[in-house]
Simulated assay, not measured.
Amino acid sequence: MTILPEIKPQGPDTGPRHVAIIMDGNGRWAQARGRPRLYGHHAGARRVREIVSSCPEFGVEYLTIFAFSTENWKRTQTEVAGLMNLFRRYIMKEMQELLRNNVRVRFIGDRFRLDDKLRGLMDQAEDVTRECTGTNLTVALNYGGRDEVTRAAKRLARDVAEGHLGPEDVNEETLPKYLDTYVLPDPDLVIRTSGEARISNFLLWQSAYAEYEFIDTLWPDFTKDIFGDLLKGFDARDRRFGAVTA
């Protein structure tokens, strides 16, 4: 396992440092307009740019977006193929824009089911933006929380079997080092759009003490102003992490 250097904190001390978003509602947004579901996914991709570009203004250092889950393969072959093509086009189109805006890109999830061209573009985007020091954008692609923990447990078990780690060394500090997100701080705030009130297998380990916001807005209608209002609401929350406020 390769350990990357931890990213130094940037930005203000108040507000959420790391925001994760379950971008839901693209298909329903399109169908409400009499358009195919892929039309909504394209609209949702354009919305990503606005939210990413607003992060420095709001002091958000890390943004993680849920683009495609391990369960999304159950969708129709037409929709899955269209989404894969959209991901390839988005990465190619946005790579230089992200670089100009000093955005560092990472991908989490199991890449092996993705096609060679998409995996190559993902590697290229990570490499091109590696030295960027602004917003840290993480895209969860073919990602599932249970799948991530399972893969981490397998790597950890392999290290124990090979003698690199003792069974007594396995604890809450050890396991996260084997997760896809091992160089990222845990999310402070998780937002889900579209009115659904579930976490859908997203960042299960990392979000143990995250604050949640479930809102009715469909993702293509999720604006910078809505994002800003949710961040302001976060500042008013009392985060005790199991303790009692004096």
Score class of each variant (00 low, 15 high):
residue 3 I to D: 12
residue 3 I to C: 15
residue 4 L to Q: 00
residue 11 G to P: 02
residue 11 G to I: 00
residue 17 R to Q: 15
residue 18 H to T: 02
residue 21 I to D: 00
residue 26 N to T: 03
residue 27 G to M: 08
residue 30 A to Q: 09
residue 34 G to R: 11
residue 34 G to N: 06
residue 45 A to W: 00
residue 50 E to H: 13
residue 50 E to V: 02
residue 54 S to M: 07
residue 58 F to V: 00
residue 62 Y to L: 13
residue 63 L to C: 07
residue 65 I to W: 02
residue 68 F to M: 03
residue 68 F to N: 03
residue 74 K to E: 09
residue 76 T to G: 06
residue 79 E to K: 05
residue 83 L to D: 11
residue 85 N to R: 12
residue 91 I to K: 02
residue 91 I to G: 04
residue 94 E to Q: 06
residue 98 L to P: 02
residue 101 N to Y: 10
residue 110 D to W: 01
residue 111 R to V: 06
residue 112 F to K: 10
residue 114 L to A: 09
residue 117 K to E: 03
residue 120 G to R: 00
residue 123 D to A: 15
residue 125 A to R: 07
residue 125 A to T: 15
residue 129 T to L: 02
residue 132 C to Q: 13
residue 133 T to D: 05
residue 137 L to V: 13
residue 140 A to L: 04
residue 146 R to L: 05
residue 150 T to S: 06
residue 151 R to V: 06
residue 155 R to K: 05
residue 157 A to N: 13
residue 158 R to W: 14
residue 160 V to L: 03
residue 164 H to P: 13
residue 165 L to G: 07
residue 165 L to Q: 10
residue 165 L to M: 11
residue 170 V to H: 08
residue 171 N to E: 03
residue 173 E to T: 14
residue 175 L to A: 10
residue 179 L to N: 07
residue 179 L to Y: 11
residue 180 D to N: 10
residue 182 Y to K: 05
residue 185 P to C: 07
residue 189 L to T: 01
residue 190 V to L: 06
residue 190 V to I: 13
residue 194 S to Y: 01
residue 196 E to D: 06
residue 197 A to S: 12
residue 203 L to G: 06
residue 205 W to K: 15
residue 208 A to S: 11
residue 210 A to G: 14
residue 213 E to S: 03
residue 216 D to I: 00
residue 216 D to Y: 02
residue 220 P to C: 04
residue 224 K to N: 08
residue 225 D to W: 14
residue 228 G to N: 13
residue 232 K to I: 09
residue 236 A to V: 11
residue 238 D to S: 09
residue 238 D to H: 04
residue 240 R to W: 14
residue 244 V to M: 00
residue 245 T to M: 04
residue 245 T to D: 15
